[in-house]
Design a protein around this nucleic acid. Structure first.
Lengths: 335, 335
DNA sequence: TTGTAAGCGTTATCAG
DNA sequence: CTGATAACGCTTACAA
């Protein structure tokens, strides 16, 4: 079924059919009605390939999600889908492995889908520096700051990871904790990992707390299992910390279980603060104290920003969305 | 950049270029080398739209995921991605709202992408009955049984939901629990919800346990928050159950928190069994006893089955993957 | 082994 | 307001 068939069926020409199906002016009401009806009857759908071949671009908005099992991104995608579905643009969501290069992937998808714009959920500066100049479409990097990258088509919406991590650690310090351990991301190769690490260090420095990254910091991946293992390693070599900051909620949850298995109670023996503000944290016993990232707001701002960039060619922006410390049950004042 | 440009550049014709880029025979090694090099140099990529327009089908495998925040599906997608990436087929993952019609969506995507085959993660019989006859490509329905649907191109890979739910409830009964409540899915409109409910009922009947669905069953959605609320409602109207079966781990986790908030300890006061075997269950305190669905195996079988259907035109199959009862810390024998 | 040319289903430009 | 027709970039007979 093509517009040619429709043309034969209705007696109009392909030109008219095309105009009707694309809501263009200069068609008589009669023709429009007849054609729409005929199209409806046989469930006609334009061939997207032909359409895009002709138009040289898809009308779609692309979301590239770095990491397949990232809770935070999953709920952000959910919000984004809801938001974008209110517009006329179809949304394509592309999930990729955490270890692969998101920008190379984007370059390839651009060639393939010619999207109107791209939302990156997660990303690594280095990849952007190396490959982003091949991308022309307006883009928004979400959860990482792009203001230092200086590309003419790359905005960003992110939390202030450094400040947030500092806040988390400060929270522990103010409750009287002096011996604090940290489980975080790779502080060399991941922007997020590095910034959160630096935030911790800033807090330790400011309050004059002793902290030796070699001993008190565990770098690992953002998963339950890795959080668990990291906490075990910490326990093995340092038996007396009373506060633990984990740079993600999943790490925190894994770590808490490791602490429990080692006979430590949370928060009686050890206070734990997470990072992200996932739903699950509110259903643990004890409920997890955490740095809450406002997923809904980040999603809204990102989409808004991208659409502005697409439609009005408004300038770049680098938005920082504030985080909040959610003080719940996994921390306790030190006696 | 098109194959025409490439032709001009290399001195060969578009036909030869196309043959080289598609790995077809009847090209001289010299031509092949020259063309491949030129293509490499300018990072040439075939235009997928033109290609698919011509070929009348994409080479992709499509995964339609019903529900955007379903942990179980998320990890299944991860496995599927790993599996399919070993083949030559690109994988397109499409997430949709739990309440929307997955088959209609598939019909639309077929028109658009002309995929080689489709994997449905989750689905509703009714939607299949109504719309599936419009789909020609081989499909596999994952997590639901399709043997009673009788379509010539629809296989399935699923757990025996009824048996699994029965096993879970039996587990509680054998530990001496006589007063058992159940939090499950919609037993009218969801296949999964209905089957798991029937499994429970079968166990109650077999062991002569009293169970009034009106009082002892709470139908709700598969989320933490809904599990929490459902447990509260149960507590409000029935104060004395000692066993709780939740038809998904997320419901179970929400429910446990509600029990804790009501001053009940798990498992000392109330034993809880979940369903799915999510990673998170193993990191809770207490670790969640649950019916474990082998995600990895379901993914492997589904992909294998679909590829067989695509490549060898092998017959339909309706595979049932066994579940296992994972007995952990959230249950206790009744005194 | 290679080149030529006819479409694939649309859109868009023109003339009517 | 409508119809004819030339692209869009590619694959694939068929001819050379």
């Amino acid at each position: 079924m093509t517009i040619k068939d429709l043309a034969a069926q209705t007696g109009y020409s392909v030109g008219t059919i095309s105009r009707v199906l694309n809501n263009q002016p200069n068609v008589s009401a009669k023709a429009k009605a007849a054609i729409l009806q005929a199209a409806e009857e046989c469930g006609f759908q334009l061939n997207a390939n032909a359409q895009q071949l002709k138009q040289q671009h898809g009308k779609s908005v692309l979301v590239i999600v770095k990491g397949t099992s990232n809770e935070l991104f999953a709920s952000m995608v959910e919000s984004i889908q809801a938001l974008v579905s209110q517009t006329a643009y179809p949304l394509i969501v592309d999930y990729m492995d955490e270890d692969h290069n998101e920008v190379q992937r984007a370059v390839q998808l651009c060639l393939e889908k010619k999207p109107l714009g791209i939302l990156f959920l997660g990303g690594n500066s280095e990849n952007f520096c190396q490959y982003f100049d091949k991308i022309q479409a307006p883009c928004v990097l979400v959860t990482n700051d792009a203001s230092q990258l200086h590309f003419p088509n790359l905005s960003s919406v992110s939390s202030d990871d450094m400040l947030a991590a500092k806040t988390a650690v400060e929270h522990l310090i103010r409750l009287g904790h002096k011996k604090i351990a940290v489980i975080g991301g790779d502080k060399e190769n991941s922007d997020t990992g590095r910034l959160r690490f630096q935030g911790c260090m800033a807090a330790f420095r400011q309050y004059g707390i002793e902290f030796d990254p070699e001993i008190d910091y565990e770098a690992t991946r953002f998963s339950f299992a890795d959080g668990y293992k990291a906490a075990r390693r910490l326990l093995e070599r340092k038996k007396d910390f009373t506060g633990l900051f984990a740079a993600s909620d999943v790490m925190a949850i894994g770590a808490i279980r490791a602490l429990n298995d080692a006979g430590k109670r949370v928060p009686e023996d050890i206070s734990v603060v997470g990072f992200d503000g996932l739903d699950i944290g509110g259903y643990m016993t004890p409920r997890l104290s955490t740095i809450h990232q406002n997923v809904e707001e980040m999603a809204r701002k990102s989409v808004q920003l991208l659409l502005d960039n697409i439609e009005n060619k408004k300038g770049l922006r680098f938005i920082t969305v504030p985080v909040t410390l959610k003080c719940r049950e996994s921390v306790k004042m030190v006696e």
